[in-house]
Amino acid sequence: MNKDKKPQQNTILDIAEALKLSPATISRALNNHPHVKEKTKNDVLKMAAQLGYRRNQMASGLRSNKTHTVGLIVPRISMFFHAEVITTIQNSLHKHGYNLIICQSNDLLSMEEELADILYASRVDALIVACTLQTTDFSHFDKLVSSGIPVIFYDRVPLDAYPATFIKGDDFRGGYLATTHLIETGSQRIAHISGKLSSNLYQDRSAGFRKAMEQHQLPIHAEWVFHQELTHENAKEAMAKMFSGTVVPDALFSANDVTAIAALEFAKENGIQVPRDLKIIGYSNDPRTSITTPALSTIEQYPAKVGQKIVEVLIEQLKSGEKGSGLEQRPYVIPVDLIRRMSS
């Protein structure tokens, strides 16, 4: 066999010749046209499979100006919340006849900018984005919006007005619920580890923390409030600083579960009893929080509901042809709930 010889690419003309039908009939049958008899459709599909015919999706998209593909950019696919959202989006879009192109920015702005260009060049029918923590300028999405391509930001969304749809969790209420819970269980010296305030997530969760503290007339100790990259290592360093003095926190509200788990580890390593000496609550309801010892209290974000809302809004926009510039600047807010466990 000649390894350099390319496999033959059979076309609609080959199927038409084999079945003695017109190319137009073959095309309609492959596109499930209602005016084509079921027997003819079945014969065409059978012959297409027999000949190894592969539909040229790009060519079809160029003719119809629709590719039936949707682009998705997420910070990290490995993050529990985003993994759940992605699964829901892909399964739901498939039912509507759309394929999903999943891209990972690695939480890097330069990668996000490059991916936005690639997906635009790939002629996606729409784009879904959870931005990086560094994204403050959204001009790399302008070409999609100006071309009438629906853009939906979810979870991490622009802080300022932008002609796109926003779908986010109720992060202010999440921060408020978490802090109020700690106060109601007897805590008065509450620490807070949050992400950088360039992100809407951490602005809102921190605002909820401050609101609860103010309502209960509790002091906020500046030396116990951290706005940093929410990594395991950073959490351990923050905990070490908080517990280096004579007066220490009796509770911690962490703006994500990774930090809450790291804080629990620090407590165990340093003989701090949870929840007797230190109550801890995280954010996101990562599955790991239910199997730690003690199990961690957290805030449930309902990622499946976020994914469902994204697809619901997106399909409506695709059907109506609604363009970004005409969208009402009103975010869709998904409710959150407090999950009480043994750490608080």
Rank of each mutant, 00 (worst) to 15 (best):
V151D: 01
A18Q: 11
P249A: 15
L177F: 12
F141P: 04
T67K: 10
I339H: 10
F153C: 00
A238P: 00
M239W: 13
G282R: 07
P23H: 06
Q308W: 01
S22F: 11
H192T: 02
I73N: 02
I339Y: 10
R123G: 03
V145K: 12
N256C: 12
K66M: 10
T67H: 08
P34N: 07
Q273W: 03
I339A: 10
S110I: 08
I310H: 00
D277Y: 09
N99E: 05
I86R: 00
H96I: 03
S27K: 11
V306M: 07
K39R: 13
R341G: 03
K143E: 08
T180C: 14
M213K: 13
I339M: 14
I183G: 04
T136L: 06
L177W: 02
T40C: 12
L144V: 04
A191N: 01
F141V: 01
L296F: 10
S146V: 09
D337S: 15
H232I: 09
G169N: 15
S187F: 09
R173M: 15
L119H: 07
K39P: 02
P303K: 00
A126P: 00
L119K: 04
A49S: 14
T179S: 13
L144F: 10
N106P: 01
L201D: 03
E269F: 13
S64P: 02
G175Y: 08
T179M: 13
Q217W: 10
K211D: 12
V145H: 08
Y332F: 14
R288S: 08
L252M: 09
V44R: 06
F153S: 01
D171N: 15
G208E: 09
H181W: 09
A48G: 00
D286C: 12
M58T: 12
F226V: 07
L19W: 06
N65R: 14
S194N: 08
R173S: 07
L318N: 03
P219C: 12
L109C: 07
R288V: 06
N285C: 13
V306R: 03
Y162V: 05
L218H: 09
L45C: 06
E112N: 04
K196W: 08
L338Y: 08
Y202A: 08
V333E: 05
H96S: 09
Y98C: 02
A267T: 05
I315S: 07
I193N: 05
M79V: 07
D257R: 12
L252F: 10
V74I: 14
T293R: 13
A263K: 04
F253C: 04
M111A: 14
I280S: 09
Q228N: 10
F253Q: 04
E229T: 13
V157F: 08
Q228F: 06
G324K: 14
E237D: 14
A164N: 00
T87I: 01
L252N: 02
E112K: 10
G208P: 02
T246D: 15
T132G: 06
G321L: 14
H140M: 13
H181E: 09
H216M: 09
G174Y: 09
Q188R: 15
D257L: 12
H68F: 12
L72E: 02
